Simulated scan of single mutants.
Amino acid sequence: MVEILLATGTLLTAMAALGTSIATFKTLRETRLSREVSTNPKLFPLDSQGSVHIQQTKPQLQHTVDFEGIRLENFGRGPLLNLELRWSIDVKELVEFLREVDQRKIYNVHIHEGQDENWNELRLSWNHFYARQLEERVQIIAPRGTEEPVYVRPPAFFMEAFVVYLHVLIHERDDRKKYVPIPNFVPAELTVRYSSLAEDTFSQRYEVELEYEHNQTLFADEEGRYYFRLHVKHKHNKSLNMDRLFPRAPKPTG
């Protein structure tokens, strides 16, 4: 009988120790997860709006692009560190697209081959661009609301190609105020990688689209000014934008 009681006591002690160990493990795990949540950054690239002002087209295209870029917001509680951005743009597809929409052959858009692919030039209007201008780095983005927001712009040749697109499809029309459906501009892909204070790394991919805004352009106070919206869509999610705060006008029906 004594032996049974001793065995039972030993079992109960062991079970109590196991229970204490499990509780301690759960507490440590919850503490670690809580610490990660409190220090992990969360990057959200937001939709944005801009405009192109075409001042003249002859003897050469002269224009300005009023556009801050993609607004990068850190909705986490800790700083976002060592942000690397890399753009992926199909330049050959871009050239073929511009040639197709430029039915009046205003531009001789082409790729001028260099000594290797890194030195190939994309020739648009009067400007030439190296297609390797695709990377950018940002050291730190503080949590939202603590500092000024950070903006990044798509590569210069991508924006210049969009200006050519607006010129041949909108600016050259006799009636610019009439809504006419136009083909979507070639999208780009943006890959981002960043880290946290705990040295955890994060990677995300987005599709970036530029869209001409007819309704907004109708109310432009300058001749030759065309508004557009940049959309950022997570590869596995919906568009990350600010339409809740700044609703877009519905598309015209005629």
Rank of each mutant, 00 (worst) to 15 (best):
L43E: 10
H167G: 01
E222M: 12
G50N: 10
I111N: 02
S21N: 06
T217H: 09
P45Y: 03
V163W: 05
Q62A: 14
S38Q: 15
Q139I: 01
F129C: 06
L122W: 02
A188N: 06
F75M: 09
L61F: 08
D243Q: 11
I111D: 02
F228H: 00
L85E: 03
F185W: 02
T191C: 07
P143R: 07
L218A: 11
A131Y: 01
T27N: 13
R123I: 09
T13M: 08
H236C: 04
I70K: 02
K233L: 07
L230G: 03
R99P: 01
V95F: 08
L81W: 01
A161P: 04
N237H: 09
T10K: 06
V95K: 09
V138E: 00
H236V: 05
F97R: 07
F44G: 02
S48M: 07
M159S: 04
E3W: 01
L33R: 13
S21G: 05
E199I: 09
R104C: 00
W119I: 00
A17R: 03
A188Y: 00
P41Y: 10
A17I: 10
Y179K: 05
K233F: 04
R144T: 07
K233W: 05
R153N: 13
K178A: 15
I111M: 09
F246W: 11
A198E: 12
Q62H: 13
E93R: 12
Y130R: 07
G9S: 12
E117G: 00
L61Y: 06
F202L: 06
P250S: 09
A142S: 15
D66M: 11
Y206I: 04
F202I: 05
N108M: 07
V163I: 13
V101G: 10
K251Q: 14
E199H: 15
L33G: 01
A249H: 06
P183D: 06
L72F: 11
R176Q: 15
R205I: 08
V208E: 01
K105N: 12
K92Y: 03
N215E: 13
Q133D: 15
L12I: 14
V152P: 02
W87P: 03
N184F: 11
Y194M: 00
G78D: 04
R71V: 13
I141E: 01
P183Y: 05
D200A: 10
N127A: 12
F219I: 11
F25T: 06
R193L: 02
N237L: 10
G145L: 10
T31N: 13
A23I: 07
L197F: 09
P154Y: 00
T146I: 10
E147S: 15
A14G: 02
N120M: 02
V208R: 01
A131F: 00
A156W: 04
R77D: 08
L6P: 00
E223L: 06
Q60V: 10
Y179T: 05
P59Q: 14
T146F: 08
Y212N: 07
P181N: 12
F75R: 14
F67L: 13
V168E: 00
V163H: 04
